Amino acid sequence: MSETRAGFIAVVGRPNVGKSTLINALVGARVSITTPKPQTTRHRILGIRTEDSVQMIFVDTPGIHTGGKSAMNRMLNQTAGDSMRDADCVLWLVQSNRWTDEDAAVLERLRTVRCPVGLIVTKVDLVKDKAELMPFIAKTGSRRAFDFVVPLSATKGNNLDALLAEVTRVLPESPLLFESEQVTDRGEHFRMAELIRERLFMSLDQELPYAITVEIESDEPMEDGRRHVSAVIWVARDSHKGIVIGKQGARLKQVGSEARRAIQADLGQGLHLQLWCRVKRGWADDERALASLGFDLPDQG
């Protein structure tokens, strides 16, 4: 009988490099929301893949970024850093043929990591001339000693098997840490709030999405078998409220309709979704407000 392997794999990188998309592809389920906008992921989310005697627990982390000074920005970077420190393996994602100051900042954080680290070059399908990839991969791979290097496309499913084989090779012997059918550690209300926030991110322009969070306020059964869910969209300023609601409530109605369909697909159950927009001034720079909204705050020690 083969040994059982299990472990935590931190998936790290700058914002919008494809971390959540990759984890969803590897797990085979949509455990994290994805949008084209940076800093979509705000929480440490586990995506669990169990196959035979191997359990891979992928840790989706916020993008490590520079420049942001708010309490939420500090929390996002701290969450990603803690995930690297506690991991059995780290996957560092870098977009093909693109190197930024934020990639350099992630590389600096990797210097203290002692577990196996793999370099994952993402979005290779966007590079028309594949010959251009080799110099970029060679240069990026020379920046530190990596245990493995895998170029891939998560959206196309290219080379995912090669990555899974490398991760399996470096995972420690361990009993399974979660039930074999479990694909994430997050519950229904978290996923509902995230799906609503995803639709808001896609609907809103510029910086406003980063001043918004969503909280499920109530969830009650209805006589017709559906669920009545009420959710609050928290904004940081009075002026933001009108933008979220839209002219004659049009944007809030559209977001609610799209989010309801997404949540129903996730739950496999009918839903009546009611959205409210309220102001919690400066919540993104208030640690007590962040804690009350379910964010993990940095350790003070």
Rank of each mutant, 00 (worst) to 15 (best):
S2V: 12
R5M: 07
P15Q: 14
L22R: 02
I23T: 09
A25L: 09
L26T: 08
A29T: 13
V31E: 15
T34L: 09
Q39F: 13
T40M: 15
R42E: 14
E51S: 10
S53E: 15
S53R: 15
V54C: 05
Q55M: 08
T61N: 04
I64P: 10
R74E: 04
T79F: 10
S83Y: 05
C89F: 02
C89N: 01
L91F: 01
L93S: 00
L110W: 08
L110V: 03
R114Y: 00
P116V: 01
I120A: 01
L133K: 03
A145N: 14
T155C: 01
N159I: 00
E166V: 09
V183W: 03
F190T: 06
A193H: 07
L195W: 09
P209M: 11
Y210K: 12
I216V: 15
D219G: 06
D224N: 13
A231W: 04
I233K: 08
V235N: 04
V235W: 01
S239L: 00
I245E: 12
Q248P: 02
V255W: 04
S257D: 15
R260N: 06
R261Y: 10
L267N: 02
K280E: 15
W283Q: 12
D285C: 02
D286W: 08
R288Y: 04
L293K: 07
G294L: 06
